[in-house]
Amino acid sequence: MSKKKLVVPNARKALEDYKIEIAKEFGVDDPRTLASKHTGYIVRNLVEMGERQLINKNKN
Rank of each mutant, 00 (worst) to 15 (best):
residue 11 A to G: 02
residue 7 V to F: 06
residue 22 I to G: 11
residue 45 N to D: 10
residue 16 E to H: 13
residue 38 H to L: 05
residue 57 K to M: 09
residue 19 K to A: 10
residue 6 L to D: 09
residue 3 K to V: 04
residue 14 A to M: 10
residue 12 R to G: 12
residue 58 N to S: 14
residue 38 H to E: 11
residue 22 I to K: 13
residue 30 D to S: 07
residue 21 E to N: 04
residue 16 E to F: 07
residue 5 K to W: 03
residue 44 R to W: 03
residue 43 V to N: 01
residue 44 R to N: 14
residue 35 A to G: 15
residue 35 A to V: 15
residue 33 T to D: 01
residue 50 G to K: 03
residue 38 H to K: 12
residue 18 Y to P: 10
residue 15 L to E: 03
residue 52 R to E: 01
residue 18 Y to I: 06
residue 31 P to S: 00
residue 37 K to Y: 14
residue 16 E to R: 02
residue 50 G to Y: 05
residue 10 N to G: 08
residue 28 V to D: 10
residue 10 N to E: 15
residue 19 K to P: 09
residue 28 V to F: 10
residue 30 D to Q: 08
residue 60 N to H: 03
residue 6 L to Q: 04
residue 58 N to C: 10
residue 49 M to N: 04
residue 34 L to M: 15
residue 53 Q to H: 05
residue 37 K to A: 14
residue 13 K to I: 05
residue 20 I to Y: 01
residue 51 E to N: 11
residue 25 E to C: 11
residue 6 L to C: 10
residue 22 I to Q: 11
residue 11 A to N: 13
residue 50 G to A: 01
residue 13 K to E: 13
residue 49 M to Y: 12
residue 44 R to G: 02
residue 23 A to E: 06
residue 12 R to S: 07
residue 49 M to E: 14
residue 41 Y to W: 13
residue 19 K to W: 07
residue 46 L to C: 11
residue 48 E to R: 00
residue 33 T to W: 08
residue 5 K to P: 02
residue 43 V to E: 14
residue 20 I to R: 08
residue 59 K to Y: 05
residue 32 R to D: 08
residue 24 K to A: 12
residue 59 K to S: 08
